[in-house]
């Protein structure tokens, strides 16, 4: 187990380094660098920077020197917790991101739990009652859910909410509760706001998971050992619980890797429409105005969260399934 853990952790580190390279490229793609953009901005505002200011800034951001030195400067700053400065907000990136990171992770985490909570029973039902009306309904809704972009679901939601209730529930809390301390009323208010982003962000994930669970369980249910156990008179429920369900749970864990990015991406799109205090809208704004330190940092954080999620799922899988832990491949 320890060597498995070591291998996965080393792999995660390599992935993070590679991602940081890609993010560095993205930050440097737009023409000009941070300081030239800032100088231009100040010139427009009529307060030119002195040569000494500019030189100081260039040293501060490590912009002189070759590409490798620049990369190294940027990475070491990040490791020390300095993500650079936002051009738009003129504040350290960490200050802009900080307050929103919690909301992003919170919304994603709750959505993940709900996604699992819904997908598991639906997937199992759909597999056990294969070709029943319920199964057909689930499969149809699943296909639709996978084929519909989540911003479209959000738009449809908004349309019905405006025509029926005359308003759009936006943000994560109502104005009267936003600043109050935590109590039951605030919690209920939060839940009242949370269910819409959850449905919008989670639909794709639920549809994908249900499909995977259904397929896996169906594969398992037709194995000879199931037939053998049934022939010996093991009751259906016990039979299902004893082995097939446990095996079908494996991919459930391994999906953390892709469900998490899917939720975070859903947040980019949905946060925009519903006005959520999350990272998505900030990322979009930063990309639009080519505020690249901010955009790069957010992409880096989203990717890092994904990679860590994958690591957790790998470790859980290794713990659940000795074949994976020992590196034994099937077939």
């Amino acid at each position: 187990m320890i060597s498995y853990l070591g291998r996965r952790a080393a792999y995660m580190a390599a992935t993070l380094v590679a991602i940081s390279l890609v993010v560095f490229v993205i930050i440097n793609l737009p023409p000009g660098d941070f300081v030239t953009a800032l100088t231009a901005k100040y010139n427009v505002m009529g307060q030119g920077l002195t040569e000494a200011d500019i030189a100081g800034l260039r040293v501060r951001y490590g912009l002189d020197g070759n590409v490798f030195e620049q990369y190294w400067h940027w990475v070491t700053q990040i490791v020390q917790g300095d993500l650079g400065t936002s051009f738009e907000y003129e504040r350290p990136v960490a200050d802009v991101i900080g307050p929103r990171l919690g909301a992003t992770i919170g919304v994603s985490f709750v959505t993940l739990l709900v996604t699992w909570g819904l997908a598991f029973p639906i997937g199992v039902y759909s597999a056990v009652r294969q070709r029943s009306i319920g199964d057909y309904a689930v499969t149809t809704v699943g296909f639709l859910g996978l084929a519909t972009p989540n911003f479209l679901i959000a738009l449809v939601f908004i349309y019905f909410s405006v025509t029926w209730f005359g308003s759009v529930p936006s943000g994560l809390c109502s104005p009267e509760w936003c600043d109050s301390a935590w109590n039951l009323g605030k919690l209920l208010d939060l839940l009242g706001h949370l269910w819409i982003p959850m449905i919008v962000i989670g639909t794709g994930g639920v549809a994908g998971l249900v499909r995977i669970i259904r397929n896996n369980l169906l594969d398992e249910l037709h194995r000879p050992y199931v037939t053998a156990a049934r022939a010996r008179g093991v009751p259906e429920k016990q039979l299902l619980r004893r082995y097939p369900l446990r095996v079908a749970l494996n991919p459930f864990v391994s999906t953390i890797g892709w469900v998490l990015p899917m939720l975070l991406v859903g947040d980019i799109v949905v946060g925009q429409i519903l006005g959520l205090p999350t990272l998505g809208p900030i990322l979009l704004g930063a990309l639009r105005s080519q505020d690249m330190y901010l955009a790069g940092s957010i992409i880096m954080i989203l990717s890092a969260v994904t990679v860590i999620g994958t690591l957790i799922s790998d470790l859980l899988l290794g713990w659940l399934d000795p074949r994976i832990r020992m590196g034994i491949h099937q077939n």
Binding site: V22, P30, L264, L287, I298, L302
Partner: peptide, 20 residues
Amino acid sequence: ELIMSVPAIPLWLGFAAALP
């Protein structure tokens, strides 16, 4: 595996943002 482990849409967005 590396490419698959990076969430795709932020990547796309990042590259697309650089286009004038």
